[in-house]
Amino acid sequence: MRTKVFPGNYESLSIIAEFVRQAAEEVGLDPCATYAVETAVDEACSNIIEHAYGGENIGDIVCTCFIKSSELVIQLQDTGRSFNPDLVEDPDITAPLEERENHGLGLYMMRQWMDEVRFSFDDGINTLTMVKRKETVC
């Protein structure tokens, strides 16, 4: 297990990506699965900054990677506003150009590309846990 604290700003995104990419490589995820993890973590951290904290440099993002033989578990924690993920509708990815909307795509990508996505909100701490298994085919 390894944990690192990152300032909640968009400049942190590429540094967090490097942190989780290393963990994904240690687990032995293939490049496609590693890219999926990088995407999910980027989307989650962008949402934390934009929606939970409501802007950059309001609070930190704590990223913990649990490196297991068969899977990578990533936990992201913040102390911003909580939300109900069930209220975020999936975007209509078949809609014509003019009807494409600007929200919901990030959460949709996380749910599609990770094997598990779980949110919990306790004592002022928001925790997102995401799992990517080695045997999952991209």
Binding site: L13, E38, T39, E98, L105
Partner: peptide, 16 residues
């Protein structure tokens, strides 16, 4: 090397 939904939103906006 990487594109997130933020980048995809820029592409959609430009296409519109």
């Amino acid at each position: 090397s990487f594109i997130s939904s933020a980048g995809l939103r820029v592409l959609i906006s430009a296409q519109k």
